[in-house]
């Protein structure tokens, strides 16, 4: 723990000043895009926590929706401050995640994928069915933007800094988690479940932990989203949105913490540039998804590390030799 984490320091030095300065140089529209980008950043990093154990859930966007609906209820019925709604919504999402994980943990791999799809759909159908209190298919409107003292978060600039602060805290926690013993345990489960079990890792416990932790941060993202949009509906959290989340993580790669972030940055640009081709966008994104899965399974991150290995071939000769001998 005493050792300095240079990657983190370099990223902090390069990115932080840019993130703080950015809203003063860009227009109204771009700062809205940046707010959504940071919310998506929390979402995609939280999704990676689940995938490190090998559990690709299809309900993650629905769990973000749980956070959003929780925020809508907490602000509209109880009138809570935004400082309370964000953590409380995240806790509620985590609680729903805890309930869902009980049947989910009994499935593995592909079964998990399908079961999470179905359970997520169940939660979504609950919103569609009950007009009271969830607003039925039309959703909920008039969610306050929130305020802090005399600062009104309806203005994009203060909300930008609020989201930036929350995102930085969340990302830092998720980054530390990824590097911690728990994060390594998650990866051990993915690499070899039987081996992990044989050295005394309680696999179901850790898989549930990963799911609930990921759900918690998805709840944070959902809460921030609800405050920004002011209106939410069940359609926004359906499987199509989930496929976009999968596209980010597939394009970036899920092997390291930075992969999904690369994917999100690239696909956010692609999303904005494809605005004139609105109707054709799913075709484009579907094509990108297929291309990456078929031709570049490691994602852009895998491509980058391949290029790096080509450019610096003898970086760690002993390790490379051991790897070759192993294969």
């Amino acid at each position: 723990m005493k050792r300095l984490d240079w990657t983190l320091i370099v990223v902090a030095i390069c990115v932080l000043p840019a993130a703080v300065a950015a809203p003063f140089f860009v227009g109204y529209y771009t700062s809205e895009v940046l707010i959504l980008f940071m919310i998506n950043l929390i979402l995609v990093c939280s999704y990676r926590i689940l995938t490190t154990t090998g559990d690709w859930s299809l309900s993650h966007v629905v769990m973000m929706g749980v956070g959003a609906y929780a925020t809508a209820m907490l602000t509209k019925h109880l009138g809570l401050s935004i400082l309370l709604t964000v953590p409380l919504s995240a806790c509620i999402a985590a609680l729903v995640g805890l309930l869902m994980v009980i049947p989910l943990i009994r499935t593995r791999g592909f079964g998990f994928f399908i079961a999470s799809f179905a359970l997520g759909e169940f939660v979504r159908l609950v919103w569609v069915k009950f007009r009271e209190p969830f607003g039925g298919p039309r959703g909920m409107i008039g969610i306050p933007s929130g305020e802090l003292g005399s600062i009104d978060f309806f203005d994009p600039l203060p909300y930008y800094f609020f989201v930036l602060t929350v995102a930085l805290i969340c990302l830092f926690v998720m980054y530390r988690l990824d590097r911690s013993r728990i994060g390594k345990t998650f990866k051990a489960i993915y690499t070899d479940e039987g081996l992990a079990e044989s050295i005394g890792i309680d696999v179901p416990h850790y898989r549930a932990l990963a799911f609930v932790t990921g759900t918690f941060f998805a709840g944070v993202a959902g809460s921030l989203l609800a405050h920004r949009l002011g209106a939410i509906d069940p359609k926004a959290f359906d499987v199509n949105t989930m496929v976009y989340l999968i596209i980010w993580i597939v394009v970036g790669g899920a092997a390291t913490f930075w992969g999904p972030i690369i994917g999100l940055v690239v696909m956010t640009f692609a999303f904005e540039w494809s605005r004139p081709l609105l109707e054709w966008r799913p075709l484009l994104f579907g094509g990108i998804l297929i291309f990456f899965l078929v031709a570049l399974p490691g994602g852009l991150e895998g491509l980058l590390s391949t290029i790096r290995d080509r450019l610096v071939p003898k970086r760690r000769p002993a390790e490379a030799a051991a790897k070759e001998a192993g294969e």
Partner: peptide, 20 residues
């Protein structure tokens, strides 16, 4: 070699067919 990859890629295919 990867069930999930095929499944996700066909989700992309579903998008494409809908648009087409």
């Amino acid at each position: 070699n990867n069930v999930l990859a095929g499944f996700m890629a066909t989700a992309g295919l579903a998008f494409m067919l809908q648009v087409l």
